[in-house]
Simulated scan of single mutants.
Amino acid sequence: MVIGYTTGVYDLFHIGHLNLLKNAKGLCDKLIVGVTVDELVAYKGKHAMIPFEDRIEIVRACKYVDAAVPQYDMDKLKACKRLGASILFVGDDWYGTDKWKKYEEDFEREGIKIVYFPYTKGISSTRITNALKQVRGWTSEASEAAAKAHLIAEENSNNG
């Protein structure tokens, strides 16, 4: 059985995410997806619009995904070894970089192949987030405040 692994934040799930998962599943028998936990997203200097618990459930619900697991650190080699993956799927924006040339050597020593997929042109979570911020004035803080207000309103309607 060929086990494949890929990781991502999967914030504001879009067609690019779906394309990656669909293409990856086509090259393995079992696809395991690491979903980046909120703390690691923050460590990378970003903030997910969608909470981790929701993001991992969205990924789990995708028919191409056999299992979704939390990604607590950036060590993809350790994750592949732990999960028994023989293929790592990543976006081609990393291809040819010094960092990934080194990764390729490390992965090859462990018998794990890296497959690069082209990014879906014209789409990214960052672009969607920026568009929402401009059009709707959204910020992470605003979305959290709106969610809290919704919960309070829901509680009040249930108590009243």
Rank of each mutant, 00 (worst) to 15 (best):
D75H: 03
D66R: 06
P70C: 05
S86G: 07
K30F: 11
Q134G: 15
P70W: 12
S143G: 00
L31S: 10
G91T: 09
R55S: 11
E154Y: 07
F89V: 10
E154R: 11
I112M: 00
N130H: 11
D54V: 13
A147H: 08
M49F: 13
Y116M: 09
E108G: 04
S143H: 05
G84A: 02
V69I: 10
R109L: 02
N23V: 04
R82V: 01
W100H: 07
K25W: 04
A85I: 01
G122Y: 08
K133S: 14
G84P: 00
P118W: 05
V37Y: 13
A85H: 01
G45C: 10
Y72K: 12
C62G: 00
A142H: 11
A142M: 10
Q71M: 09
A67E: 14
L88N: 01
K46N: 09
Y5F: 06
K81L: 06
G91W: 03
E141D: 15
I15L: 06
P51R: 15
T97D: 01
W100Q: 07
I123L: 07
R60D: 03
T129K: 14
I32V: 12
D75R: 01
N19D: 14
I32E: 03
V41G: 08
F13V: 13
I114N: 12
K99W: 09
V35G: 13
N159W: 01
F13M: 14
F107K: 07
S124A: 14
G16Q: 07
S86N: 03
V65C: 06
E108H: 05
E154Q: 07
T129A: 15
H47M: 04
A147T: 11
V65E: 06
L83E: 06
G45I: 09
R82M: 08
E39C: 02
A146I: 09
K133Y: 13
P70V: 10
N158S: 03
L21A: 08
F52T: 14
C80N: 02
N19M: 15
W100N: 11
D93M: 07
R55Q: 11
D92W: 03
N130R: 05
K101M: 12
L12C: 09
K25N: 03
S140P: 03
N156L: 15
G91I: 10
A67P: 00
Y5V: 02
E155S: 05
E108P: 00
A24I: 14
N19E: 08
V90F: 03
G26H: 05
K81P: 01
